[in-house]
Design a protein around this nucleic acid. Sequence first.
DNA 1: CGCACCACAATTTTT
DNA 2: TTGTGGTGCG
Length: 786
Amino acid sequence: MNNDIKKSFIKARRKKIGDTFPNLNTIQKDAVLTTSGPLLILAGAGSGKTTVLTNRIANLIRFGTASDSDTIPEHISKEEMLAFVDGDAECSDKICAVSPVPPWRIIAITFTNKAADELKNRLQSLVGEQAEDIWARTFHSACVRILRRFADRLGYPNSFTIYDSQDRLSVMKSIIRELDLNDKTFVPKVLLAKLDAARDELLSPQDFKERYNSSGDPRERKLCEIYEIYADRLFKAGAMDFEDLLYNTIRLFKEHPDVLSLYQKQFLYVLIDEYQDTNNLQYMLASMLAEGHGNICVVGDDDQSIYKFRGATIENILNFENQFKGCKTIRLEQNYRSSGHVLAAANAVISNNRGRKGKTLWTTAEEGEKLLHYVAQNEDDEAQFVANKILENYEDGGKFSDNAILYRMNAQSNRLEFAMKRNGIPYKVYGGTKFYDRAEIKDVLAYLSVILSPADDLRVLRIINKPARGIGKTAVERCVEVAAAEGKPLFEVLKNSYTYDELRKFSSKIIPFTDMIIELIELSATLPLDRLFEELLDKSGYARSLLETNTVENKSRYENVNELLTNIQSYMTNSEEPSLFGFLDEVALYTDLDSYDESSDCAVMMTMHSAKGLEYDNVFVVGVEESIFPGLASIGDTAEMEEERRLCYVAITRAKKKLVLTSARQRMLFGRTTSNMPSRFTEEIPSENIERGGYLPPRQKIEEFAAARSFRREGYKGPAATNLNASSGEIAKYSAGDKVVHRVFGSGVIASLKPVGGDALLEIIFDTAGKKLLMLKTAAVYMSKE
DNA sequence: CGCACCACAATTTTT
DNA sequence: TTGTGGTGCG
């Protein structure tokens, strides 16, 4: 009897807690009320994933595990239970809460600052000021926060600086120069990507050496050396690049279990957004943190994985269920964003991909307008067409800011900009030169970095003669040589330059510089940040140098520097404990999209990649042509093509009401006139959902083209065309012990094969990539038998 | 030391 | 076509 009361109490409790989230649908509610253990939320585009994430956190904070636990707090009497079950009282914290979770024990990780801010804002409105204590951060800023506390355990100063992609590029270039290597064979960017890949596999320079130093390829052996020097240089400079932030956090956790256990104990709940875009390190970070209490919730959409080229492994989301045992999976498939036609088009396009979890979005929204595919004569016609449509939308009472133009590459934005200008349409381009990438901003920020960390040679070199103070190239070279010979930071040598015979003659120029820096360092201890910055501009002579020569460029540079001052001041008012490195952290982890301003009424232009997570009433996707979108490099490569298609899916699902795709019969690209067929993606949209107009190539030509394409595919490719629906046959094809070649991981041997509900889990030992767990249906697309 | 000129390359880029 | 980066000269 007693048990019956308890049971009905527990049931009523879940129901009533659910009722406190009246705006959620049943499935969303299920996700919100699931509090314990691993949870995978497959959230289609526009399905309200941020709502689910934030409400789930709100539920944890208010009711703890009550919604799906059997626990009944002892202080609740039988009478209270009965009254609760029968009555229509709302659930009070006293009756319904079971160990509510303190906000600081929840970590919610996103990829962009923008997403983190949105999360914070929405949490703020749900749970009030408690939201402040939730760790709602990006991967990188979470790592920074941890490392600011414990970097010394790895031998770094806790005041380490962060190198951005430009910084690391110049480090790499100087290494290549010093090793006397050819930058055609050793392309700096490629090398950096390789170092990222190495660290993604958690390989230290030593590990890397062990693996590749015996390699027959001399370039690989050289790479070992380069990695070692690169790592050493950053370490000595007390600097970390973006990848280091993740890599070192993992290392910290591995080498110092006490630190790991501190955070494991702290974080009762770990939530990860955009899980499909995580790389191996991010996966490790998430799972290490979650190991403490086993409560990990990831949200993602395998169909929106578009960052493979940056190291994201779609396998993370595809394998989540295998990696976290007892995982519950919830699919959010109801779309609240787009009209029926838009959604149908998105579904149709993405269904051409093989390696997916499989999801079909649906909506109760109206059909809306059919999509439009317009084939322009050339890129100017295309741009003008878009401009006209935007004006039409505006005249219909919309705002300019309801319109977004998306393209595959930034180079495409130019003609569109002209068209906007010509037609008097206010617009903004995202992803151009970022504020913090401007030279003058980097200069003054370098001063701030040096104040904080004078051992940062790279930054010292940047400012040593900016503005010109007579320290010439030879002087700098000599000093660098001495510093290298002495094994000391450059700044140390500069400071004592008069003690070195070979440097004495430069000393008269150098000492005023070092004195100035030392003075600024002293000032930094007492002055507030904005005052320090003003002193810096003055004492360094930087401001003066900009004002001296009165050119348009210098004027805008001066304005930019002043804007930075404004940024510093707003940082100071927004931060609880403003500090120099707090500000520099924020700047280092800042991206262009963060300055995204919705308030001004401008049409926006950006790449499809940058558009992820955003939505607009009217979306224009331009340059929808073979060899632009899909790009040339992806044609003939199934995996790449699927990524392009996912990008297309992302682009389509940005639209709430109207979607226009455009292609041009002829276009000037890179100074050459080319003519491309309309993209295959336009053909993948059913005719009932799309209107086709403009200078379409004759139907016959399109068919011929498609036929030629598929012929080529049949001709070139073996296993990629396998039909995955014939899964049993697919499974039969492989067995343990088979040698396979994987497009991404290279060759390997199947160690085991376990059938799992119509699919199979493969364990493959790859020669270079090590052991991987892969789902057969997915892997088969990328893999063939040797 | 700074500027001008030429060669070169050009997916996408959450931090 | 456009932007960038390296080189060489004034």
